[in-house]
Design a protein around this nucleic acid. Structure first.
Length: 745
DNA sequence: TTCAGGAATATTTTT
DNA sequence: TATTCCTGAA
């Protein structure tokens, strides 16, 4: 039996809802996943719903995994047979099951964005369109947006009036043909084809409607139009649709997400029950208040406000830094102190920023200060060149007609098949109206090549052909090994001997681990199954294990996570909101981004901005973000005040006391005083250089002379002991940092 | 064919 | 400032 007593009344109402549409507004940290899992458990255990008739859709694999494991914990084997997965994974699975009737072969592979761009580049070349004027990326983006709106090439063509769109309209149909030829679907196609399938065949539609009697969509504020239509189709018959989301956390409109769709839910389903989860189990009240004051400036949002039982808490800090490196140094100083005092460990902190480029100054500062840290999500595992190359080999083994993979590996590593030869292949393929692979196999083709190229190409095709043969008998692990060896890829990397090559080799070995795990856990152990699996998981959760390190990430990647202490940095006009956001709609999304960042914080939230920063090389002045004007000013203190106050137990002390610690009133919006002066003024009494000692550092003592710091350990009252090895006969001594007898040397 | 150096370019990125 | 992509010389 499920114990509902752990839920608050609203959570419980949502979890106990059985029939009919349900809309749950689940604010940040409101226990959303708990509600979802309890509701599913309730359906199965108390209402005898067959697990296989429940469909739970998420946006990320991580969320899907999380849900599965929590369901498993809650009810063990009873959760078996549930459909839990991302939109894309579920569509892929269903299309393999019954996509044939609309011409989708079950062995299709999925093209990711860089594959798309590659295809489009080729098309641009063949159409003689200038890539400078019409970048492949932008065209691919335009096609993707069209598909999200369910516009096929013909429909798009009819609506394409602008110059750029006219070009897109020429590329789009060819792009589709190219995918068809390679038996590939892109991410958007997975949804598009699924919808086509359901609209094409009433029987199949009804079969799926009956199969998925209970549908649950997580993060509903992020659905795009295609996903919305798909959900409508599936839920049409039984109306047992539960959507969970938070319009305040909609930050993916550039990927096609439409907030309006969650706000419209009650119009779509007038009988829908609406529940708001407003109790927050994560942050302190000051943090929630500040976050609310920011996001409530938005005009288009459903009314709601988070509250918590954690009414006491450290007030936010708002700090103006001199420039970006000063900003990073301030953060480094602050967190280093907390760790030295024993109040926190490195893993308690997260630095959140708007753009990836901002990570640089923090990396520099953290490295300088020997602060363990990790940048999250900058380069995804499957986006690495070596991994993509290897995957291309594997895809080519499964399907030699895959043009993208063919081009990718034909000369990687360099094997003497250069641009000239590749062009010849391309041209011949066009003549015989076949794939690149077909062209190489064609008898009349060889005459067109130089002997040298002929030999090189012969080696290549023979190698692929042999690997293809082996695919029937060998395990994926063995195939991967063979592919790396036979292709010369492995050897090539080994020869290079650079650190970079070493990294690549390491990544490839990590990849082999992934393969091994797949072979252990998957039922279908074929290479095809592996590729299909790999194309839908990008983040590789397995290598993301936590260490005790400060995490750095963009605001986007921070969604769904939480940290004891959050530094929200670079909160400046032009960065947050970003200068590229123009319309009021854009600005509202930027504000939500700010809100998402703020609500990641459990105990402490520190907001920083710089007066100037280096942008693409040159210095530029910045202004604080207009979003900050919404913050309750009387609650704000700059970080220096907290840092250099003699009170160690800053946690839990009242805002009044903290304010009293500061000598003067602090107004974050006046730009009058010279910052340098203010800074010196604050730092002088106890500058960080004089109090912060790290192992390995050289120091000078008033009496003992020179020495090297061996270790530091927390003492009372925020102070700490520094153990130093002094030169000469003095040897080891332990000195209390606050005595001020030690100086950096 | 390859590789080195110069020009162009630089939000966010669940799948 | 860094990175990527493209062009021209060896």
């Amino acid at each position: 039996m499920i114990d509902f007593s752990l839920l608050n009344p609203e959570q419980r109402a949502a979890a106990e809802h059985v029939e009919g549409p349900l809309l749950v507004f689940a604010g940040a940290g409101s226990g959303k996943t708990r509600v979802i899992t309890y509701r599913i458990a309730n359906l199965i255990q108390n209402h005898r719903v067959y697990p296989g008739s429940i469909l739970a859709v998420t946006f990320t694999n991580k969320a899907a995994e999380e849900m599965k494991s929590r369901l498993g914990r809650l009810m063990g084997d009873q959760a078996k047979g549930l459909w839990v997965g991302t939109f894309h994974a579920i569509c892929a699975r269903l299309l393999r099951e019954s996509g044939r009737v609309i011409g989708v072969e079950p062995n299709f592979l999925v093209y990711d964005d860089s594959d798309q761009v590659d295809v489009i580049k080729q098309i641009l070349k063949s159409l003689d369109i200038d890539e400078k004027q019409f970048p492949a990326r932008q065209i691919s983006y335009a096609i993707s947006r069209a598909k999200e709106k369910l516009l096929g090439p013909e429909e798009f063509e009819k609506k394409a009036f602008e110059f750029f769109d006219r070009v897109v309209a020429r590329v789009y149909p060819r792009y589709q043909e190219a995918l068809q030829l390679a038996n590939a679907l892109d991410f958007d196609d997975l949804l598009l084809k699924m919808i086509q399938l359901l609209q094409h065949d009433a029987q199949i539609l009804e079969r799926y409607q009956d199969r998925f009697r209970y549908i649950l969509i997580d993060e509903y504020q992020d659905v795009n139009y295609a996903q919305y239509i798909l959900v409508q189709l599936l839920a049409k018959k039984h109306h047992n649709l539960c959507v969970v989301g938070d319009d305040d956390q909609s930050i993916y409109s550039f990927r096609g997400a439409e907030v309006e769709l969650i706000l419209r839910f009650q119009k779509d389903y007038p009988e829908a029950v609406m529940i708001r989860l407003e109790q927050n189990y994560r942050s302190t009240q000051p943090i929630l208040d500040a976050a609310f004051s920011v996001v409530s400036q938005n005009r288009s949002r459903a009314p709601k406000r988070l509250w918590t039982e954690r009414t006491e808490g450290m007030p936010l800090t708002l700090t103006r830094a001199q420039d970006d490196s000063d900003e990073a140094q301030l953060v480094a100083d602050y967190l280093q102190r907390q760790v030295l005092k024993g109040d926190r460990t490195y893993g308690d902190f997260a630095v959140l920023y708007r753009t990836n480029a901002q990570s640089r100054s923090f990396e520099d500062a953290f490295r300088r200060n020997r602060i363990p840290h990790r940048i999250v999500g900058a380069l995804r595992f499957y986006d690495r060149k070596e991994i993509k190359d290897l995957l291309a080999y594997l895809r080519l083994i499964v399907n030699p007609d895959d043009a993208v993979s063919f081009r990718r590996v034909i000369n990687a590593p360099p094997r003497g098949i250069g641009a000239q030869t590749q062009q010849t292949i391309q041209a011949h393929a066009a003549i015989i109206n076949g794939s690149l692979w077909d062209a190489c196999q064609d008898e009349t083709f060889e005459k067109r090549l130089s002997p040298r190229a002929k030999q090189a190409l012969g080696h290549f095709t023979k190698m692929i052909e042999e690997l293809r043969q082996q695919a029937h008998s060998l395990s994926v692990t063995a195939l991967v090994k063979n592919a790396l060896e036979r292709s010369g890829y492995w050897h090539h990397l080994q020869m290079e001997g650079t650190t970079e090559a070493r990294d690549r080799i390491e990544n490839l070995m990590e990849f082999m681990n992934v393969v091994a795990v797949f072979e252990e856990t998957s039922e279908d152990k074929t290479l095809l199954a592996f590729l299909q699996h790999a194309s839908l998981v990008s983040d590789m959760d397995s290598v993301q294990e936590q260490g005790n390190e400060v995490l750095l990430m963009t605001l986007h990647t921070s969604k769904g996570l939480e940290f004891p202490v959050v530094f929200l940095v670079g909160v400046e006009n032009g960065i947050l909101p970003h200068s590229r956001s123009e319309t009021p709609r854009d600005i509202e999304e930027e504000r939500r981004l700010c809100y998402v960042g703020m609500t990641r914080a459990r105990d402490e939230l520190h907001i920083l901005y710089a007066q100037a920063r280096r942008v693409y090389g040159d210095f530029r002045w910045s202004q604080p973000s207009p979003f900050l004007k919404a913050l309750p000013e009387e609650e704000l203190i700059p970080l220096h005040r907290v840092m250099y106050s003699s009170t160690s137990a800053y946690q839990g002390i009242s805002p009044a006391i903290l304010r009293a610690l500061s000598q003067e009133e602090y107004d974050p919006f006046t730009e009058t005083e010279a910052f340098g002066e203010e800074r010196a003024d604050i730092r002088d009494p106890v500058s960080p250089e004089s109090l912060l000692f790290l192992p390995g550092q050289r120091v000078n003592h008033a009496k003992f002379g020179f020495g090297i710091v061996i270790r530091t350990e927390p003492a009372a009252q925020g102070d700490y002991y520094v153990t130093v090895m002094f030169s000469g006969a003095t040897g080891l001594k332990t000195i209390l940092a606050s005595t001020g007898l030690l100086k950096g040397a």
